[in-house]
Design a binder for these strands. Structure first.
Length: 218
DNA sequence: ACCCAGGTGGCCC
DNA sequence: GGGCCACATGGG
């Protein structure tokens, strides 16, 4: 019963926290990319990696004229790896990125928009079936490349949830906790991709402005 | 010299 | 089905 009250308070507080972030930071206009395809590339490269490093990697791809689905679908791994080296885990990510592009190239003629041209659930299942695309990467692609209302849960979202004491999670850290927190957000907000987009972008902005301290400060 | 970053899949029990 | 672990660079 106290649990239920917490959840209720949290849902009521959700909007007010959102409005607070919005007035504090202003609209974010996410994702920082020039195309939906570039969003997908960034989503894969930023796995457990700071965005700054990903920017370098994407800049390298652009500089060498390789930032297209067709190029990346056929580029040799030995050529791709050094280009994305700055993003870390570059051997794994080279494989993941290339496989993703090969898939989109052969199945959708390199058009991410076509992949996204079906129901949210279908897209999500399809993305999750690809090697190296887990829940967060899939949700980022759905929301920011496909304009679909799929709330993105990432390290910032978990930290944000704790800092503002929004939802008490029962599941232990892991895949199930991801699903749990995602459900918390999605079922208490209108299913609006613009809102999901802006809210998560603001959470990331908040996360960057409030970095985790490792021994001092609350 | 640490610790951390917009995760994921492969093992092992 | 859960608990570890490798993966790797760049910045504080």
């Amino acid at each position: 019963m106290p649990q239920r009250k917490n959840v209720s308070n949290a849902s009521r507080r959700l909007f007010s926290v959102y409005r607070m972030l919005l007035s504090e930071y202003g609209p974010q206009h996410w994702w920082p990319a020039e195309s939906s395809f570039e969003v997908c590339v960034g989503a894969i490269l930023t796995q457990n990696t700071s965005w700054k490093n990903v920017e370098n990697a994407i800049a390298q791809l652009k500089k060498h004229g390789k930032l297209s689905c067709r190029s990346l679908a056929s580029i040799p791994l030995s050529e791709l790896e050094p280009l994305i080296r700055a993003s870390g885990y570059y051997r794994q990510k080279a494989i993941r990125l290339k496989k993703f592009c090969q898939y989109v190239e052969t199945r959708y003629h390199g058009d991410v928009g076509k992949l996204m041209d079906q129901s949210l659930d279908s897209c999500r299942d399809e993305l999750l079936s690809l090697h190296g695309i887990g829940p967060e990467t899939a949700d980022s692609m759905l929301l920011y490349a496909g304009n679909k209302p799929s709330f993105v849960i990432d390290a910032y979202t978990f930290r944000f949830n704790e800092a503002f004491q929004l939802f008490v999670l029962r599941e232990p850290p892991g895949r199930k906790q991801y699903v749990e927190l995602k459900h918390c957000f999605e079922c208490r907000l209108p299913r609006d991709e613009k809102l999901f987009n802006e809210f998560h972008a603001l959470i990331v902005m908040w996360g960057k402005r409030n970095p985790k301290r490792h021994s001092s400060q609350p």
